[in-house]
Every structure is written in structure tokens, then in C-alpha cells.
Design a protein around this nucleic acid. Structure first.
Lengths: 152, 152, 152, 152
DNA sequence: TTTT
DNA sequence: TTTT
């Protein structure tokens, strides 16, 4: 049937990721805020997307992504309508993440400076350095291999 | 800010496009069906996206796209929640189209067969042949220039 | 670091894919022709990209893709300069394929007709029907999982 | 013929952009460095892409982009082989920019500058907040409308 | 819930 | 020529 959907997002994490094990595989979930386009004069609007990564990428998310970080996410969009616990019909935009790149976040307050260095060696793309705090983010590209058999 | 969203879709038009003039500019709207990914054993599901193109691209849509045609669409995703006339909360996935490529569509009903050949010639990208019927689609790439000042 | 490159191509295979085993994994290679944009009046130009898919996707390529078929390919662009056997400096655009969607190819010659219908049923995205000949292509989306450790 | 190519890049400017007028329209050119994927143990490699933006986007580039800044660029890839002034065959990867998003760049050396501010007005998405120095870059998304008739 |  |  030749169908395909791909969504590309650049936004900021609304909160720290939640990581858990699901039937032996790690899954990381987080939400990112993407400013919607609004016409001049219109009230700003934010779209929220729930993003999940599995396996190796879930580990990357767990290690390096924190609330407020800016990320590039590529994945498949899926939508879901559900009824929340107040009886309201709600709509969810879910992204099954396929690729992830951490973008240049930076200190947003005080900051001791000198924190972004990549202390080591010849790492290239998929090399991720430890990031202990929101302030010491690093920029890294990872490839999220989408599992053959999605466990959900 | 650094926000960005882009959606890429390959799907089929659910109906002929609707084209109208809006404050002096042409706008074309259509919906495309994109098969959602479902796990083996799950019930198939189709996501529908409402797509709009403005200006030159609306003209292209008007001339060449028909119900059933397969298209590649690139654009900005916007979402909208509204209450339909039965009081139901509904959710709409709208795509402000930016780029459009017609893919090899074909007859899906009756049909005398043997009609899809591209009768040769040196057409390349932005070359669009007239398409009188659904059966004589051609493959063409157009660039939908997104207007500087979106009229909506 | 924060580097990333992704290329999206829609084009036609210049020849049947070549599939071989490489250290226990299957790799499929093919070239696709993409019409370059040229200004009105300019001479048409075709860009050729060498595409490779590994593992499951290589199998999909092997089974379903043939010379002339139209495909959507997503992958990482890599470039390579080399000296050919005539001493000429040559440049190669290689795409490490990540996602692949077969588009609506169609008979481009004789043709027995009646072959493109999707005989119904519950196939959705990752459902591929057998394709014995170039004429009976089907449209299918596959996800090419990029290996964690690229064997090349 | 249903051809399409799109390239998505995240990288850093190798130098300040060069902006000039070309037949009444502004064009901005810059090069971005994108770290190529290399296998563990391999020597790091950088791919350089020459990017050009026209019209409004050229103005954005002129105002906000500087050497070292990180950007997200979307455009059409075109390739060109030429002979440089030493007689060498060279290959150029050119990107006709369509969309541009400034990512979180940050200080990399002295200099207060004071030149990038967007002096107000009704910009929205393409709305950039004042940026006084290279250190206080801001993240902004702009849409580069690709001209109907590319002036080159 | 983010960011500017 | 960039960035880490």
C-alpha cells in the first residue's frame, strides 16, 4: 500500500525521561515541547509529543537527556484517542523514535563554565560522554534502531 | 525557541481535492490515508491527514491530483481539537504542505488495463503533463513555496 | 558534536539490485536515478546514488526491487573520492539505507494487465506480496534497521 | 518522473556567511561541517556542504548566523564536478536551502559584537529575539521559501 | 511539562 | 573552515 509517515521534531524535553524495562528491553519515554506556528497576533501555542525509544537508544536517553534539553527526534507518528480519568476525550501524539541527536543545550543560569568539553579521544558520532547535570550536556548523534518486532 | 516540526507522508487521496479561493489566493485541500503501523495480528488502522497547499501548489493539486492518487507530501504538522456538531470532541491532524511529489498512481477499479505507461519523452522533475483522468496520472515533483504570510 | 545528515530520495532503480553475503550478513546494493532540478531551458541532468541496505532490508530489496522500480529511500549520505582504473578522480554518493518504501511502479511495456490490484485483505504497511516480475510490483514499506555495528 | 531529493543536515558553520546581491535578490552562502559516520577506530572525517539561501532567508542568515554556530538545514542537494585552479578534479556538495533552524550555539571565544539583534516588528516563527553577542545566540526557526525561478 |  |  505504499504508506509511510515520518516526523521530524526539534524541541525541548518537558521533564526528565522515564525509563523502564519492558519484557526484557529498556524503553525510555519523554515529552518534548515544540512551538507551534501561530500567526502574528495569535496566542503562542505549544504542541507536546510523547516520544519513546527502545533498546540502545533508550540507554542513551537515560544517560544523557534531561528536562530542558534540546533534541532532534526522528520517528514514526502514531496517534491515539483515549478517555482520560475525568471522562474527557483526549488525543495523544506518540512518536516511535528512530533517530536522536542531542543539540547544543547550554547553561541557563550561573554555571561554572568550562563544562562542555569532550574529554576524550577520537570519538565521533555515536560517542556519548557522561552528562551528570543539565548543564553539562554534550552534543551527540545516535541511531535508534527500530526493533523488528515492536514490543507494544 | 529552536522548535521545528516536519512531517513526511506517503499515502493516497481519500477523495478529489477541494480547491477554492481565499482572499485572492488559491488553496487546495485534500485528505490522505496513511496506513498506520500495526503489529502482526493487530487490526489494520488508517491515519487520515488533512493537507492544504497554497498558491502555485494549489494549482498543481487542482490540475493533477485525484482521489486514489498516491502522493509524497512534506509539510508542517498542526493539530487542532474541536467539538463537532454532535458535541463530540474531535482531533484533527492538519498538514500545511510545503513539498509535493506525485507518485505512480494507478487504476483501482474497472479499467481497461494497459494504461499506466509513461509514454516516454524527456520529462523530468518539474514537468507536469496534463492529467484528464485518474488513470493517466504522471509523476511530478513540485515545490510548494510556503507563503511568507500564511493567509489563515 | 551534534552532527547529523539524512538524505531522502525518490527515484528509479537503474538496474536490478546486487545482493551478496558479507561476513554472514546480507547486503543489497543498487543505484537510483534522481532527476536533478534544472532551470527551464537547461539540459536535464540525472544524479545517481548508490544505495545499500543490510540484513532484513537487503532481503526485501532482493525479493521485491527490480530495475525500473520507483522507490523512496531514506538514509545517511556518505561521500567518497577515488581514482578509477583510468586514473580519473571520481566521486561517489553512497547512501546507507535506513528506510525503504516501494512506490507504485507499473508496467512500462507490454504487460498482461490486471496485475496491480491489491487483492484486498488485511495487509498493511509491512505486508509484502510476492512479486515475481517487474510487472507485478507491490507497494510496501519496510524499516531498514541500521545495524549497530556497520560491517564495512 | 517522480524524482525527489531532500537533504537534512545538522552541523556547524565553518566560517561567517558571505552575503551578496544577485540580480536584485539577496543570496547568502556558507559552509557547514558535518561529522561523517566512521567506524570505531577509523579516523574522524568531516563532510563539508556548501549551503545557499535566497531572499528573506538570506537576510536571516546574514543577521544571525556566524562561524561556529550550529544549524539545522533542509534543502535540495545538488552536486557538481569541477576542475580547480590546480587542475584537480573537485566535487562539490551544494545545498539549495529550504528551511533553516538555528540551534543552541554558544560562546567559543571573546568578542561582544552587538550586531545580530532583530530590531523588532511583527515576526513570528521567524521571530528572533535580540541577540547581542555571539554568546547569546538564540534559537529560531525560519522558513526559507524556495524561489519559483531559481536565479542561477 | 519545555525553550526563547 | 566547524563542533565535541
Amino acid at each position: 500500500m505504499a504508506s509511510y509517515n515520518k516526523i521530524i521534531l526539534i524541541g525541548h524535553l518537558g521533564d526528565d525521561p522515564a525509563v523502564r524495562d519492558f519484557e526484557g528491553r529498556k524503553v525510555a519515554n519523554f515529552s518534548i515541547a515544540v512551538n507551534a506556528y501561530t500567526k502574528p497576533g495569535e496566542e503562542p501555542k505549544t504542541d507536546w509529543f510523547r516520544v519513546s525509544f527502545w533498546g540502545n537508544n533508550a540507554e542513551v536517553v537515560e544517560k544523557y537527556l534531561r528536562k530542558g534539553n534540546q533534541v532532534y527526534v526522528e520517528g514514526r507518528l502514531s496517534t491515539r484517542t483515549y478517555t482520560d480519568n475525568t471522562g474527557q476525550t483526549r488525543f495523544s501524539l506518540d512518536v516511535q523514535g528512530q533517530n536522536l541527536t542531542m543539540l547544543g543545550s547550554r547553561s541557563d543560569s550561573g554555571g561554572e563554565g568550562g563544562s562542555y568539553q569532550n574529554q576524550g579521544g577520537g570519538q565521533q558520532q555515536p560517542a556519548a560522554q557522561p552528562q551528570n547535570t543539565k548543564r553539562e550536556s554534550t552534543d551527540t548523534t545516535f541511531n535508534a534502531d527500530e526493533p523488528d518486532d515492536l514490543p507494544f
